[in-house]
C-alpha cells in the first residue's frame, strides 16, 4: 500500500510517504530544536502551535518529494499516543480530515511501536527480537514476537535515560538537547577517574533507574569549591555517559540472555548516542547476538517508522474510525492488533 504517515507526539512534526511498509519515498522532519534551544527544554504549547503551522506545507512537501499525487494514496497512518495531547491532536485531526476527504482508511498507531519497528525500513530483522526503546520519555525493554505482539520486560522506575541527559546537561550549563552535546564531550574527554553509581545494576531486575545518577552528578558539583572549568565539565560528561551507557548495555544484554533472544534492536533518540552504539557493538562482537541500530534519521521522531505497523494493520483490514482520539498515556503492551 502507498501510505502517508504523520507524527506529532512531541517536538517534531514529521510526514512521510512509504510504499508497502518498506520503501521510503520521502521522510521529512520539521525540526524544532532551534526554537526550543532558547528555553532549555521542549515547550509544549510552542510545540503544538508549531505543529499546526508546519503540518500543511510539510505534507505537501512530503508528497512532492515522493512524486506522489494525493489521489494515489491508499491509506494514512498517524501517531495516536503516547505524548502531549495538544501536539498529538494536530496530527490525529489532520489525518482524520485527510482520510475522510480522500475516502481512504486511517490507522492510529503507537509511537514506540513505530520506533522499535523502524529498523525494518532498512533491513529485515526477524522476529522474535529484543527491543530497547530509549529516548527522552522512554527507557523500556520489550520482547517483540511480531507486529502488535509486545511484552514488557523492564522499564525505568523514575527518569528516562534521555531525560537524565537533558537534566545533567542543564546542571553543567550546556545547551539543549543535552544528549548530543554530552555525547560529543564524552568522545573527546576521559572521565579523569570520576565514577558515578550504576543504580539497580547489581539487583536482579530488568528495570532501570536514572534519577540516582543525576543526583550523583549534582552532589559532585556541590562538592566542588569553584565552578567547574571546561576540562572538568568534559570529564563529568564523560563519566556520566559512561555510567548510563554501562547500565543500558548490561541490562539489555541481561534481558537478551534471560529471554534467549539473538537479535537486539535499539531504537529511539538515545540510540543515536555513539558511546552506546560502540559499547554495545563491542560487547556483542563475536557472540551469537547481533545488535541493530537504525540510522539516525530513523532513531529520531520521524513519520516513516509508523508505516511498518500501519501497512501491516491496514493491509489486513484493520483500521481506526473517525472517532479516533489522541491518548497521552498508552502502555505498548495494550496495543491490541495482530
Amino acid at each position: 500500500m502507498l501510505l502517508l504517515a504523520l507524527e506529532s507526539s512531541c517536538d517534531e512534526t514529521a510526514a512521510a510517504v512509504v510504499k508497502d511498509g518498506r520503501q521510503i519515498r520521502s521522510n521529512l522532519i520539521a525540526s524544532q530544536v532551534e526554537l526550543h534551544a532558547v528555553y532549555g527544554g521542549v515547550v509544549p504549547e510552542l510545540a503544538s502551535r508549531r505543529h499546526l503551522e508546519v503540518i500543511n506545507p510539510l505534507v505537501e512537501e512530503a508528497l512532492s518529494k515522493a512524486s506522489v499525487n494525493k489521489a494515489e494514496l491508499e491509506g494514512i497512518v498517524v501517531t495516536r499516543g503516547p505524548g502531549l495531547v495538544g501536539a498529538l491532536l494536530v496530527g490525529v485531526s489532520f489525518a482524520k480530515a485527510f482520510a475522510y476527504a480522500l475516502g481512504i482508511p486511517l490507522i492510529g498507531v503507537h509511537h514506540i511501536e513505530g520506533h522499535i519497528l523502524a529498523i525494518q525500513l532498512e533491513q529485515q530483522v526477524d522476529f522474535p527480537f529484543l527491543a530497547a526503546a530509549v529516548s527522552g520519555g522512554h527507557t523500556h525493554l520489550y520482547r517483540v514476537e511480531g507486529i502488535g505482539r509486545y511484552r514488557l520486560l523492564g522499564r525505568t522506575v523514575d527518569d528516562a535515560a534521555g531525560e537524565a541527559f537533558d537534566k545533567v546537561a542543564k546542571m553543567l550549563g550546556l545547551g539543549y538537547p543535552g544528549g548530543p552535546i554530552i555525547d560529543k564531550l564524552a568522545a573527546t574527554h576521559d572521565d579523569g577517574g570520576i565514577v558515578f553509581p550504576r543504580p539497580l545494576l547489581k539487583k536482579n531486575t530488568l528495570d532501570f533507574s536514572f534519577s540516582g545518577v543525576k543526583t550523583a552528578v549534582l552532589n559532585y558539583l556541590h562538592r566542588l569549591e569553584n565552578p567547574p572549568g571546561e576540562e572538568l565539565i568534559g570529564r563529568i560528561a564523560c563519566a556520566f555517559q559512561t555510567a548510563v551507557v554501562d547500565v543500558l548495555t548490561q541490562k539489555i544484554l541481561r534481558a537478551a540472555e534471560a529471554e534467549n533472544l539473538e537479535r537486539i534492536v535499539v531504537a529511539g533518540g538515545v540510540a543515536c548516542n555513539s558511546g552506546l552504539r560502540q559499547h554495545l557493538s563491542r560487547l556483542t562482537e563475536g557472540s551469537e547476538r547481533t545488535v541493530y541500530f537504525p540510522s539516525p534519521v530513523l532513531c529520531a521522531d520521524n513519520a516513516a517508522m509508523l508505516a511498518v505497523a500501519g501497512d501491516y494493520y491496514l493491509s489486513r483490514g484493520a483500521s481506526s474510525g473517525f472517532d479516533l482520539n489522541a491518548v497521552s498515556s498508552w502502555p505498548l503492551e495494550q496495543v491490541v492488533w495482530g
Binding site: C10, Y39, G41, V42, D159, G162, E163, K167, S211
Partner: peptide, 28 residues
C-alpha cells in the same frame, strides 16, 4: 512505577482518589 512527568507533563494514576502528577518545568 511513579516516574518523572517532566517529558509527559502529567502522569495519571488510579488510586483511592485519582492522582494527577504534574511537572510544569518545561512550561514557559
Amino acid at each position: 512505577p511513579i516516574t518523572s512527568p517532566t517529558f509527559t507533563l502529567m502522569n495519571h494514576y488510579s488510586a483511592r482518589l485519582d492522582l494527577y502528577h504534574f511537572d510544569l518545568y518545561r512550561l514557559s
